[in-house]
């Protein structure tokens, strides 16, 4: 996989979540994602970005337009230096929330994209990498 263009986007507030979604929608368009895939990716961004803001105390989103053979895609890394997730399996369970959400963000985001990887440990922050191909 090779990266053609990349950058970083700050996630500090709910406003940044909205701006982040808009930025990713542009990238998705650029990669030729279909409307439904654009919508799925943008929704996953909304979930992961908001988690970084709410639970991670703010973070960053690295974005890259990637290429592999003939296909193009958007790869995003959501990182924060927050408290981390003690039990990833539990956090990835539909309906589990430590706050007062629906507990669907992480598991839902995974179902909305093509590739999903999460790394987190208490005191180590959280890092979620997703990719959506055209």
């Amino acid at each position: 996989m090779s990266s053609m263009r990349s950058g970083t986007f700050a996630l500090r507030s709910e406003q940044d979540v909205v701006l982040g979604r808009q930025a990713v929608r542009k990238l998705a368009l650029e990669c030729g994602l279909r409307l439904v895939d654009q919508t799925k990716l943008v929704t996953a961004v909304s979930e992961l970005a908001r988690n970084a803001v709410i639970y991670g105390g703010g973070g960053d989103m690295d974005w890259a337009i990637v290429e592999e053979g003939a296909r193009k895609g958007v790869q995003l890394v959501f990182r924060d230096n927050g408290p981390g997730i003690p039990d990833i399996k539990q956090a990835m369970t539909d309906g589990w929330t430590s706050g007062n959400g629906l507990g669907l963000g992480l598991a839902g985001a995974k179902r909305l994209v093509d590739q999903f990887d999460i790394q987190s440990a208490p005191g180590q922050g959280t890092r979620v990498t997703i990719t959506k191909w055209n």
Binding site: V36, Q38, T39, K40, T43, E47, L102, L104, R111, L112
Partner: peptide
Amino acid sequence: RPQIAQTIVHLGL
């Protein structure tokens, strides 16, 4: 809209 409907399903709402 259709794309929203599909997204809702995958999200698990």
